[in-house]
Amino acid sequence: MPTVMTEGKAILIDKSGGMEAAGRRRARRRREFVIEGGLLLAALVSVATTVTILAVLLFESLGFFEIVSLLDFFTDTLWTPLFDDPHYGILPLLAGTVVTSVVGLLVAIPVGTVSAIYLSEFASPRMREIIKPTLELLGAVPTVVYGYFALLVVTPALQLLWPDLPGFNMLGPGIVIGIMILPLVISLSEDAMRAVPMVLREGSYAMGATHLETAWRVVVPAATSGIVAAYVLGVSRAVGETMVVAIAAGQNPNLTWNPMEPAATITAYIVQVALGDLPHGSIGYRSIFAAGLVLAVMTFAFNILGHVMRKRFREVY
């Protein structure tokens, strides 16, 4: 380095070095700014997706409701958009959705709650370590496989009990939906019960209560909102379940509350129309968006309710 140097030159070098550093800092700051902007854009994709879902559903539904009045949509008892004499009453599809979901919940809630209590309060840590990942695995199995079970395993088995059960019915798929949402119900309600502080249990034991009395009268009441949240999220999953009912519940809209009969659900109808070749913009094409809008509103409502309740159980203690 130049040790012999005029003062002026040294200052000049120092200055240019400083300018270089300032330039580097500016470049660095600019790069940081661009990166942060890019990351923000990526994060905004989920907002854009939500908005677009609503926009697409509303836009296509508006075209549908120009032709079909809201009154007909909610009161007509026939759903035959593809017939010569079209009727557009959502009730039969809603009934199918409600019946299959209720059957599913009748399976999932009792079995799920008892399993969750056992897992949280009675099972050894080792057993929990094995059961929890197993449940996770079962939750990951593709739903089309569960559709196969409903049509080709569970329904034939039920026909042994009730020989006049039709090959397509709502009972079989309902039961399979129940089995399918079990992992979700068990794991969420177990989380809620494990979040109950140990001191509450110890207090109860100190009063001479047994394990079961503590679980039933202390832990479950304390975890109620979390357990109910698990049910609600289970309902949301059951309502939106598609492949099981599309495969095994039949394709005919049928206004009935009897689970032994075949009937189409909202989701099954969407699949049925999508499999066919309906022209873009036709009323049949738009009808699946109207049906989808009803489904989206229902699941949104259940999801919001579920998450509000889950938040509550976290904040209590």
């Binding site: 907002v47 879902i53 969407i270 989808g292 699941t299 259940f302 999801n303 579920g306």
Partner: peptide, 22 residues
């Protein structure tokens, strides 16, 4: 952003299908 992420996780997959179709 956080609300929409939580919400999207619970949207039935067939609704994503309708989004994609449109």
């Amino acid at each position: 952003i956080e609300v929409t992420v939580t919400n999207l996780a619970g949207v039935p997959s067939i609704i994503f299908g309708l989004l994609a179709l449109g």
